[in-house]
Structure formats: C-alpha cells, structure tokens
Amino acid sequence: MGIGVSVFLLAVGGILSFAVSDRISGVDLTVVGYILMGAGALGLIMAVLITSQRSRATHTSVTEQRRYEE
C-alpha cells in the first residue's frame, strides 16, 4: 500500500467517522471509519519506513584488476 492509498483511507475513514450521520441496518459507519483510519495510518507508517530504508541502503561495486605477466 503506497502513501497515496494510505492518505485516501485516512480521508474516507475520517469522513465516515465524523461527517456521515446516515444509518445503515447492521453496519456502524463510525466503526468502519475508525477501521479505515487505522488501516490508513498503519499503511502510511509502513510506507514511510520502507521508503526511508530504501534511501539508506548503500551500493558498492567491486572491480577486479588482473595482471598479465609475459
């Protein structure tokens, strides 16, 4: 899950939790919103951690020198 999807889940979860007052039989939209916000926050943290790990990685190249004797 990328940063964009995580922010989208946070936004949709916030809207469902705080702005929607409709009732659906058998579904608590407030709880669904909190679950979506939790998933978005977890995804955002994971995306940032993976991105920061990738930027700290170092790459080394090994070159081999051969000497030819005649």
Score class of each variant (00 low, 15 high):
residue 3 I to V: 15
residue 43 G to Y: 03
residue 18 F to K: 11
residue 31 V to P: 04
residue 67 R to H: 09
residue 13 G to M: 08
residue 37 M to T: 07
residue 6 S to Y: 01
residue 41 A to S: 14
residue 7 V to I: 15
residue 8 F to Y: 08
residue 40 G to M: 09
residue 37 M to G: 13
residue 7 V to K: 09
residue 63 T to F: 14
residue 15 I to K: 02
residue 61 S to R: 12
residue 36 L to D: 00
residue 15 I to N: 01
residue 14 G to F: 05
residue 51 T to K: 15
residue 36 L to V: 09
residue 22 D to R: 05
residue 10 L to F: 03
residue 5 V to I: 14
residue 24 I to H: 03
residue 62 V to E: 12
residue 54 R to H: 13
residue 29 L to R: 04
residue 12 V to S: 06
residue 22 D to P: 01
residue 45 I to T: 13
residue 47 A to G: 06
residue 15 I to H: 02
residue 70 E to L: 15
residue 14 G to D: 07
residue 53 Q to H: 02
residue 42 L to V: 14
residue 58 T to F: 06
residue 29 L to E: 04
residue 21 S to R: 13
residue 21 S to W: 00
residue 68 Y to M: 08
residue 39 A to M: 15
residue 59 H to Y: 12
residue 65 Q to H: 10
residue 66 R to I: 10
residue 12 V to P: 02
residue 48 V to N: 07
residue 35 I to H: 04
residue 26 G to Q: 03
residue 49 L to H: 08
residue 13 G to N: 03
residue 16 L to N: 02
residue 36 L to P: 00
residue 18 F to G: 06
residue 10 L to K: 05
residue 62 V to C: 03
residue 60 T to A: 12
residue 35 I to T: 13
residue 57 A to W: 03
residue 39 A to R: 01
residue 30 T to S: 04
residue 52 S to H: 03
residue 23 R to F: 00
residue 48 V to S: 09
residue 53 Q to D: 09
residue 43 G to A: 07
residue 15 I to Y: 09
residue 23 R to K: 09
residue 29 L to C: 04
residue 5 V to L: 12
residue 13 G to H: 03
residue 18 F to I: 01
residue 4 G to K: 12
residue 34 Y to E: 02
residue 7 V to T: 11
residue 37 M to W: 01
residue 54 R to N: 15
residue 70 E to P: 15
residue 36 L to T: 05
residue 42 L to F: 12
residue 62 V to N: 11
residue 3 I to R: 11
residue 23 R to P: 02
residue 67 R to L: 14
residue 48 V to A: 15
residue 40 G to P: 00
residue 65 Q to I: 15
residue 51 T to D: 07
residue 51 T to W: 13
residue 68 Y to Q: 15
residue 18 F to A: 05
residue 2 G to I: 12
residue 52 S to Q: 13
residue 65 Q to P: 11
residue 66 R to D: 07
residue 67 R to W: 09
residue 56 R to Q: 12
residue 42 L to W: 04
residue 60 T to I: 06
residue 38 G to Y: 06
residue 41 A to G: 11
residue 41 A to M: 07
residue 48 V to P: 01
residue 39 A to V: 15
residue 63 T to L: 14
residue 46 M to F: 11
residue 14 G to R: 09
residue 56 R to C: 07
residue 30 T to Y: 05
residue 18 F to L: 09
residue 69 E to K: 06
residue 20 V to R: 05
residue 2 G to L: 05
residue 35 I to P: 00
residue 21 S to A: 12
residue 1 M to A: 14
residue 65 Q to F: 13
residue 70 E to C: 08
residue 26 G to T: 07
residue 17 S to L: 11
residue 54 R to P: 00
residue 35 I to R: 00
residue 2 G to R: 10
residue 26 G to A: 05
residue 33 G to N: 07
residue 55 S to N: 11
residue 61 S to Y: 14
residue 43 G to N: 12
residue 20 V to N: 10
residue 12 V to R: 01
residue 66 R to T: 10
residue 61 S to V: 15
residue 41 A to P: 01
residue 7 V to E: 08
residue 22 D to H: 02
residue 41 A to Q: 01
residue 27 V to H: 04
residue 55 S to L: 14
residue 64 E to K: 13
residue 24 I to E: 05
residue 70 E to D: 10
residue 57 A to Y: 06
residue 40 G to C: 08
residue 14 G to P: 01
residue 67 R to E: 12
residue 5 V to W: 03
residue 48 V to L: 14
residue 28 D to L: 12
residue 23 R to I: 00
residue 36 L to A: 09
residue 23 R to Y: 02
residue 56 R to Y: 11
residue 11 A to P: 02
residue 54 R to K: 15
residue 38 G to E: 01
residue 51 T to C: 10
residue 13 G to L: 07
